[in-house]
Simulated assay, not measured.
Amino acid sequence: MVKYRRARVAGACYFLTLALQNRGSDLLSRHAAQVRQCLRVVQVQLPFRLPALVVLPDHLHLLMVLPPDEADYSARVRKFKIAFVAMLRQQGAHEVLTNAKGEANVWQRRFWEHLIRDEQDYCNHVDYIHINPLKHGLVARVQDWPYSSFHHYVRRGLLPIDWAGGAGVEIEHAGE
């Protein structure tokens, strides 16, 4: 088995991207409420904060802040993926098949992780998360995508409702 080198800093903030095996699926946006519910369940088991999140049809981006004495974001990702698959099975909302290793046909095995280095890096990733539905052509304005922490930022007065206007913003990221 390949041992991936991942940054592990206790109490740090990480940008994470989790993707479905079927990148043409809309499973996550159809079940956005269940995505949030599964994240809350994991937060109770293994605490973390979610300063920013966007649920897209076939992947999601989030910022995860770990408690000061913990660095294991992988365990949280694993528990979330398991919880989401269990919810799909329980609700019969999606045919969940397993391979010879017992892995469900829902998530890609790996996920993208980036250790947030400083305040500018943090702000850049919050912006990236919020602009993502526009970047993927899902909406004409950021405010029109319902499955985003963008709306929380607007309610708190951190961003204007017309942030990023209606025109696309060129933001490149190695995670996609």
Rank of each mutant, 00 (worst) to 15 (best):
C38M: 13
A32N: 00
Q45G: 03
Y147L: 06
R6F: 07
H173K: 11
L56P: 02
P68W: 10
P67I: 01
R30P: 00
R117H: 12
V44K: 14
R155D: 10
N22W: 05
M64A: 12
G24P: 05
H125C: 15
R76C: 05
D69N: 09
Y14S: 14
A83M: 05
R117D: 01
N99T: 03
A52E: 10
R76W: 04
G157V: 12
L63Q: 03
S74H: 14
G165A: 07
H94R: 11
G137T: 10
I82T: 13
A71L: 06
R49E: 10
V126S: 01
A32K: 03
H31E: 07
R110V: 09
C123P: 00
Y128R: 07
N132V: 10
V54K: 10
H59Y: 13
Q143F: 15
A167W: 00
V106R: 07
N105L: 04
V9I: 11
N105E: 06
L158R: 10
L18S: 14
F84S: 05
D72Q: 08
Q45H: 11
S149F: 00
L56K: 07
H31Y: 13
V65W: 00
L53W: 07
V2S: 13
R30S: 08
Q91F: 01
H173F: 04
R156W: 07
N124K: 10
R36C: 05
Y147H: 15
L28F: 05
R109T: 06
F84H: 05
D144V: 09
A75S: 12
V77Q: 04
M64Y: 02
Q21E: 15
L56R: 04
V44Y: 11
E70Y: 01
Q34A: 14
S148K: 13
E172I: 13
N22C: 06
Y128N: 01
D127Y: 11
F84V: 04
F15P: 00
A93D: 08
V77C: 08
M64Q: 02
L53A: 04
T17S: 13
R5I: 15
K81T: 03
